[in-house]
Amino acid sequence: MSTTTTRTEETTEPVRPSGGTSDRARAEQRLGWLLAGPAFVVMLLVTAYPILQAAYYSLFDYRLTDPDKRSFVGLNNYLVILTDSVWWTSFGVTVFITVVTVAVELVLGFALALVMIKALKAIRPVLRAVILIPYAVITVVAAFAWQYAFSLDSGFVNSWFDWLPGVSADTDWFGGTFSSLFVICLAEIWKTTPFISLLLLAGLAQVPEVLQEAAKVDGASWWQRMSRVTIPNMKAAIMVAVLFRTLDAFRVFDSVFVMTAGANSTETVSFLAYRQTISRLEIGLGSAVSVMLFVSVVLICVLFIKGFKVDLSAQRGEN
């Protein structure tokens, strides 16, 4: 990646006239638009259109089985949502799942990335494949597997771990809020740690080996090299990994749907949107919840990019 950067700089810098864009740069820009254009149009069709439609529907009182009675209610649906304790409970549960899973995944993912980069060349491909397997499993399938493992009648967890304090043959994991959230978080962590470790592996590979060697020559310990050389040099990669995973975690739906169906106050914001739109058939109210979810995700992005100064272009090796 760093070689590409150097080459671009070398080729474009000398021909650029002062204060203007060269013909070549303009041609490259045009080519860039031509290459990205079709994908951009497709994205507009499949993403922007439904988002705009949801924002439009969210201003109506609209029931799917009664389209004739559709009426404009302005921002009333948002008022209903923001004054309802159910929204705030779901929001709290979603934030809890997001914070817990992302924090644990970051630590575990970093450890796995270190294992992958340090592993012997011979076993590296096998190791990477093994670590990636959970990520290849469909979320719904993974959620069912974890539910069966922890369920009272068919699960093995209670009999394997009954030596742990608080676990017995009669422990009903899905009978309480925190025990349910524990299993949901565990399933999420198992499933998506490989994703975060892969992003961190890319960051680790970018840290120049010469810096490590120089630190070694200076007598730096393993911990000093990690905290002073490795982590500062891959800060951009870490932040991008955390951002992507946070956006993903905030939309958690499958595990909750399969494991608890929202029982015991385990409803997340996505689940709330599902319940209003699909189950209750209230397209207006459900769209408003979806728009709120979208706004939350946008706010997370803004917080990361502006607040933590995450530079997405740094991840591409442009800076």
Binding site: S151, L152, D153, D170, T171, D172, F174, G175, A263, N264
Partner: peptide, 15 residues
């Protein structure tokens, strides 16, 4: 029984 809050028809039949 201990898993009552998650007991459906199938769990009942097994019990």
């Amino acid at each position: 029984g201990p898993g009552f809050s998650t007991a459906d028809e199938e769990v009942n039949a097994n019990a």
